[in-house]
Amino acid sequence: MKVTMTVNGATCSGEVEGRTLLVSFLRDTLHLTGTHVGCDTSQCGACVVHVNGRAVKSCTMLAAEAEGATVATIEGMADADGTLSPLQQAFQDHHGLQCGFCTPGMVMSAAALLAENPKPTEHEVRHYLEGNICRCTGYHNIVKAVLAASGQDLPAVAAE
C-alpha cells in the first residue's frame, strides 16, 4: 500500500507492506538513518521520533498508521545550514553523548519534554527519559544538557 506523510516539513510517499514499521520506512525508504534501531522491542528508545508532535517509538508503530501524520526526526532538528539546535548544542557542550547511538532518541525525547514542560526539574528530566537507555554516559551529562537547553542554571546533578 502507499503511504504519505510529512517528514521534517517535506511531503514523503512510499510503498509499504502492512507489517512495515515506521522506523523501517524512515530508514530504508526515505534513507533517514539518523533514527536508530537499538533493541527493536520498544524498550531502549533509540528510535524515538515525533508523530503529530508526540514522542513515539518508531520501531513499535506501523508505517501505515502514520498515514497523513506530521513526523519529526533527528534530521530535522538542526537548521538547513547545519547549525545545531540549542538542545543538540547542549548535548555537545555538556558531553551528553559518547558513542552516540542513543543520542537521536535522547534528543527527540528531550525535545518532547521541553515542548510540554519548558523548565523541568532534574527529577522530571530523569523521569521523562525513563524509556531511553544509554550505555555510555551514566545519564548525568544527558540530564545536564537537557537542563542547560531549558535555559536554567545548572545545579550539580544528583549522584555527583
Binding site: S42, A55, K57, T60, M61, S109, Y128, E130, G131
Partner: peptide, 9 residues
C-alpha cells in the same frame, strides 16, 4: 505506565 513514548501510543 511504561514511559512517555509508550504512553503516547
Amino acid at each position: 505506565i511504561g514511559d512517555p513514548a509508550v504512553r503516547n501510543r
